[in-house]
Design a protein around this nucleic acid. Structure first.
Length: 356
DNA sequence: AAGCCGGGGCC
DNA sequence: GGCCCAGGCTT
């Protein structure tokens, strides 16, 4: 029995029933694939349900504001996915009459769609015989074929792409592609792969040689760096505060946060002068300065360790009477939950301003 | 070719 | 604490 036959037999019995597997609608498939980039099914599933429900068609998504899309995306991370999702929805809605391209090459020209996602949509929705290559596929193939080339090296990416395309069952690209990824996710797992009852025992190089725990090989990632974020949480007599949308490069682009003083080292309570410099708030209006958390709140990202403090600043009179320097927006504290914010900020809001 | 970009789950 | 995840974009 060949590779595909064994794989599909396994898939028939073991696959999960997932909602995006019940459709050939390229919009729904695209939506699911963007959500699932670098994201496990368990984490992405509730977001998929929210998005399909709120945006049944690509036109609905195109007509929404970017702020609303980011708010629905909040907590899922890699927020460029949400911005690109919205951009591409508008492009497809307005320039392509709502119809997604039906082939790999054209799909790849859309923002946010790379090799993997183009192959997924082309094969799932249009049965184009192009192999998907994701982390699951790389792991399965590195073990099955005994490939030590690092999966994240330039050479490795090319090699796994070539091998994957050779193994692809061109008569059934949609099911085959889903099957090999499902096999990687459920059976040929990174740790404790289920080799003792595997349909590939007889031809898997790794199992035959007992090297499954050495594969795949991956180049080391860069070290986690520390950053110190000191947030200024202003409040006036009317229950207002000020926030700002993060712009330009860097993390959390497009999300809102409180006025931020980033420091090279752990920060003491900022002085009135520093608060004035960061926000434009006149010194005379600063009533009281207090720190919320004595110990820094630690927020871990894959490549950053953010140590943050939140500083409470009470203001004389009303914030709405003042002119702020750059692009701060006045917001009722009770309305903060309507904004798209990083999980770090969301956690703070929920703990300090619980719903009455 | 290497860095950057989140957050949750697992060991 | 390190690694993984239905990756893609930027430099």
């Amino acid at each position: 029995m060949n590779f595909s036959k064994r794989l599909l037999n396994w898939y028939k019995v073991e696959h999960r029933d997932l909602p995006w597997r019940h459709t050939k609608n390229p919009y729904i498939i695209w939506l699911s694939e963007i959500i699932l980039q670098q994201t496990q099914v368990k984490q992405g599933l509730p977001y998929f349900q929210k998005f399909v429900s709120r945006f049944p068609t690509v036109h609905d998504l195109a007509d929404a504001s970017e702020d609303e899309v980011l708010k629905l995306w909040q907590g899922l991370g890699y927020y460029s996915r949400a911005r690109n999702l919205h951009f591409t929805a508008q492009y497809v809605s307005k320039n392509l009459n709502g119809d997604f391209p039906d082939n790999f090459k054209e799909l790849k020209t859309l923002k946010g769609i790379g090799d993997y996602t183009a192959a997924a949509i082309a094969s799932f929705a249009f049965e184009e015989p192009v192999a998907v290559v994701d982390g699951n596929v790389q792991r399965v193939l590195s073990r099955y074929l005994g490939i030590y080339t690092p999966i994240n090296s330039t050479e490795g990416v090319k090699e796994f792409k070539t091998k994957a395309q050779k193994l692809l069952d061109s008569s059934n690209p949609s099911i085959y592609n889903q099957a090999i990824m499902e096999f990687g996710a459920l059976h040929c797992k990174p740790k404790s792969p289920k080799c003792m009852f595997c349909v590939f025992q007889h031809d898997c190089t790794a199992f035959q040689q007992g090297i499954q725990d050495e594969l795949p090989v991956k180049l080391k990632k860069t070290k986690v760096k520390k950053r110190y974020f000191n947030y200024l949480v202003l409040s006036d007599s009317e229950g207002n505060t000020i926030v700002k949308k993060r712009r330009g490069a860097g993390i959390w682009q497009g999300l809102y946060e409180f006025p931020l003083i980033e420091s090279e080292n752990p920060q003491e309570i900022p002085t009135s002068e520093e608060i004035n410099e960061a926000t434009g708030m006149p010194l005379a209006r600063i009533e009281k300065i207090k720190i919320y958390n004595e110990e820094p709140v630690i927020h871990l990202l894959s490549h950053r360790k953010i140590l943050s403090t939140f500083i409470e600043i009470e203001i004389n009179g009303q914030l709405s009477d003042l002119k702020f320097s750059n692009k701060f927006e006045i917001c009722k504290i009770k309305n903060l939950r309507q904004l798209a914010v990083p999980v770090l900020i969301q956690n703070f809001i929920e703990s300090e301003f619980p719903i009455a």
